[in-house]
């Protein structure tokens, strides 16, 4: 059966309308994706760093100084590197951020905690440590970056899950 002219036009118009809708639906989203990273600095970028310096630099700082005002509680020997309990407390005034770095992990940065005003500079958590290495607590205050570290010996690596 051959298609009448009217039917042909109707289906054709429908298909075009669909195409227009599809195009309209996709282009704004593409535009949004392109502008988003420029609006805010990427919080995931520090996670690419492999050393303490790289991580601090990616956070927008430089020359982190050692400080005895940061208390890092970590076990000296961790039997299981997949679960290493850490307690970090900062007595530095104006602490805004606490981060955990273990340099021998595939990616040095483990976690970042933002401390809003009114919250205490205290964090307790558990992280994975691949092999015996220094664990570093980075603290960002209004005056810059500070750190303290402790060696944690791992008898069973954290990569096994």
């Amino acid at each position: 059966m051959s298609m009448s002219r009217r039917a042909f036009l109707q289906t054709g118009a429908g298909a075009t309308a669909l195409l227009v809708v599809a195009a309209a639906g996709f282009t704004p989203r593409l535009g949004l994706a392109a502008t988003e990273p420029a609006a805010a600095p990427d919080p995931r970028k520090p996670f690419q760093g492999h050393t303490l310096d790289e991580v601090v630099k990616a956070m927008g700082g430089s020359n982190a100084q050692q400080s005895s005002e940061i208390a890092l509680q970590a076990p000296e020997i961790a039997e299981n590197g997949a679960v290493v309990p850490l307690v970090i407390e900062s007595k530095l005034p104006g602490t805004r951020m606490i981060a955990i770095v273990s340099e021998k992990n595939p990616h040095a940065l483990s976690a970042v905690f933002n401390i809003p005003e009114g919250a205490e500079a205290y964090v307790m958590t558990r992280v994975k440590i691949a092999e015996t290495s220094k664990v570093t607590a980075i603290v960002q205050t209004d005056k810059g970056f500070f750190y303290t570290d402790q060696l944690v010996k791992v008898t069973l690596g954290g990569c096994g899950g």
């Binding site: 997949a82 990616h107 940065l109 483990s110 905690f113 933002n114 009114g118 992280v127 994975k128």
Partner: peptide
């Protein structure tokens, strides 16, 4: 009261 960014190295 707290926000955090985590990597895969959290247990």
């Amino acid at each position: 009261v707290m926000t955090a960014e985590w990597g895969p190295a959290v247990s």
